[in-house]
């Protein structure tokens, strides 16, 4: 059973099952997330707070996974996109006195548009992984400086207190937990539905070989932009809801080294492109972070050590690694035909 589940999580595995069966892993995740507070940490506000942070990061990570994991666009602006959601929520609801949910929606929309435009530029100029990474990193840093510079609007480095914030959520941590648990589950459903649709097929093809995908009739550029829009919307929505539930944001909340680095580590560690990888990555990461927190000053050092070790050791991610372990006995080690160029001719060619 475990083997089956793990196999189905393998990154890049085409999801042959259709309809409801494809959503089974998500349903399982939803159940686990739902029962965690009552059976484990519900009574500790501190632990619940940690769980919320984990879920927030998992949400960012799923969005990033749609963009980078599915279509290989290295978006180093997760923090900035989340910041767009967060600040839009704050400014539209406080300064423009719109209802909070309108602010969140507008933030989501703007993040989606910005992500789409960045992707469109990258696609039009055929920027590879590294140039897309640099372009989006440059955007992140510029956004950060704008937040700091436009003091009248954003409050600069002092930050912004949301008048419209959900005080109830800030007090009742379990409520906040369920808000973000629901968000993660919804994102996972969306991710799974994309995976099982023709869009998912297009993603797998273009991730393997762009030219071959084009020759197959796949509009690689369009699917890239599509992924960027969907992923950025997820990230913007998460940022907006975070601002709404926490009640206080400042530029550091969404800084590159606060968000992007962690999200990148979580997703790559969890397994690029896999369904539950981002969530597992976020969970493991937060757990390790907790273990390290008692180490005080040396924490950041250990953290760096961990990143290096993880990437050199688990290059292809946790979920795929587990998948390979689970798969080993299932698929015979030797294929039917040896892979040589002068192997036997194809059977019944005529």
């Amino acid at each position: 059973m475990v083997v089956r589940v793990v196999r189905s999580l393998r990154s890049g595995t085409p999801v042959a099952r259709s309809g409801l069966a494809a959503l089974l892993p998500v349903a399982g995740t939803a159940v686990v997330l739902a029962v965690l507070p009552p059976i484990w940490f519900g009574r500790s506000t501190y632990t619940t707070g940690l769980a919320i942070i984990t879920l927030v990061f998992a949400s960012y990570a799923v969005g990033f996974n749609v963009i980078f994991g599915s279509t290989s666009q290295l978006f180093l602006c997760v923090g900035a996109l989340a910041g767009i959601g967060g600040y839009a929520t704050a400014l539209f609801s406080d300064s423009a006195s719109l209802p909070v949910f309108v602010g969140v929606l507008l933030g989501t929309l703007i993040a989606a548009i910005v992500g789409g435009v960045l992707s469109w530029i990258a696609v039009r100029r055929s920027l590879g992984v590294i140039f897309t990474g640099i372009l989006t990193l440059v955007f992140s840093l510029a956004f950060q400086n704008l937040l700091l510079g436009q003091r009248q609007l954003t409050g600069g480095s002092t930050g912004h207190e949301l008048k419209a914030a959900a005080t109830t959520l800030a007090d009742d941590r379990v409520g906040g937990y369920y808000l973000f648990a629901a968000l993660v589950v919804i994102f996972l459903i969306v991710f799974r539905l994309i995976q099982t649709s023709h869009v998912g097929w297009a993603f797998r093809a273009l991730r393997d070989d762009e030219t071959a995908a084009e020759l197959t009739g796949i509009d690689v550029s369009r699917y890239r932009v599509y992924a960027a829009v969907v992923g950025s919307a997820m990230i913007g929505l998460t940022g907006g809801l975070y601002a709404y539930s926490d009640g206080f944001i400042n530029p550091t909340t969404f800084a590159f080294n606060q968000i992007d680095v962690l999200v990148l580590v979580m997703v790559v560690f969890g397994g690029l492109g896999s369904l539950l990888g981002p969530l597992l990555g976020a969970g493991v990461f937060e757990a390790v972070d907790q273990l390290l927190s008692s180490s005080g000053q040396i924490r950041e050092f250990l953290y760096g050590l961990m990143i290096v070790a993880l990437f050199l050791g688990f290059r292809r991610g946790l979920v795929p690694a587990l998948g390979r372990l689970a798969r080993r006995p299932v698929v015979p080690a030797s294929p039917l035909q040896p892979r040589t160029d002068d192997g036997p001719a194809v059977p019944s060619a005529t």
């Binding site: 023709h198 097929w201 297009a202 797998r204």
Partner: peptide, 21 residues
């Protein structure tokens, strides 16, 4: 040959059928 290495033989051909027409 430009095939998709992470997919099976059938899935490769499926992609051609799906997006070609």
């Amino acid at each position: 040959p430009r095939t998709f290495p992470s997919l099976t033989v059938l899935e490769n051909a499926m992609l051609g059928a799906m997006f070609g027409p």
